[in-house]
Computed example of a mutant assay.
Amino acid sequence: MPRSKLSASPTGLWADDSGSASLEFVTVGLVLLVPLVYLVLAMSSIQAGALAVEGAARQAARVFVQSADLDSARASATRAVEFALADHGIDPDSASIAVSCEPRPSSCLTRQGFVTVTVALSVALPLLPPVLNGDFPVAVPLTGTATQQVSRFWSGG
């Protein structure tokens, strides 16, 4: 027996739902898919920034302890950070670099001394206009730190 267009159910004339499954699928699919895609974009942007600051700090600490003097060490560390961040597609001017030394903070390149390089960066969330600056964060702050020991055979000038 063919199904009638109008049902005799107590819900009224709109009880027939034939053909609405595709509309519901598209609607629910968009409602769930759009936030999921944005979440993937945001997480990949944050992960790229995290990998960039960690790699930049590690490479800057390595070149710092291998330099001949303090001026060339600072210049080499700055170049290493710029190169590492540019390699990940991040503007190097948006990062800040801090160098600390132990056991003597006044002299970084001492034999068997430790040099710690910290690179800080804020990664903007994707697809948010810069005008949007409310009570919620529009950037995620990231920090990468690396420590290297100066060689015991170091003989700098």
Rank of each mutant, 00 (worst) to 15 (best):
F83V: 13
R74D: 01
A50H: 09
A146T: 05
A75D: 12
R152P: 10
L132S: 08
Q148S: 11
T147R: 11
D16K: 04
T143Y: 02
L13M: 10
S20A: 15
A73E: 03
Q47V: 09
S9F: 08
W154G: 01
P105Y: 02
V140E: 11
V119F: 02
A84K: 04
S45I: 00
V115I: 10
I90L: 14
P130G: 12
F64C: 00
D69A: 04
V40M: 09
A61W: 02
R3A: 10
S72M: 11
T78R: 12
A146M: 07
V37T: 11
A48K: 00
Q148P: 00
P10L: 12
L6T: 15
L51R: 10
P126N: 08
L128E: 03
A146D: 01
Q66K: 10
S72Q: 14
W154A: 09
I90V: 05
L23D: 04
S94T: 14
R79Q: 13
S151T: 07
T118S: 11
L13K: 08
S155E: 13
P2I: 10
S18W: 01
S18I: 03
L39D: 06
R74F: 03
L127W: 13
R152D: 11
S45P: 06
T27K: 02
F64S: 00
V31N: 04
M1I: 11
S18N: 12
G19K: 11
V53S: 01
D93Y: 08
G49C: 05
E82M: 06
S96Y: 06
A95S: 00
T118E: 13
R79M: 12
A77L: 04
D17H: 13
R3W: 07
V37N: 06
S45V: 02
S45L: 04
S122K: 06
A60E: 03
T147H: 10
V40E: 03
L109R: 00
P105Q: 08
S151W: 07
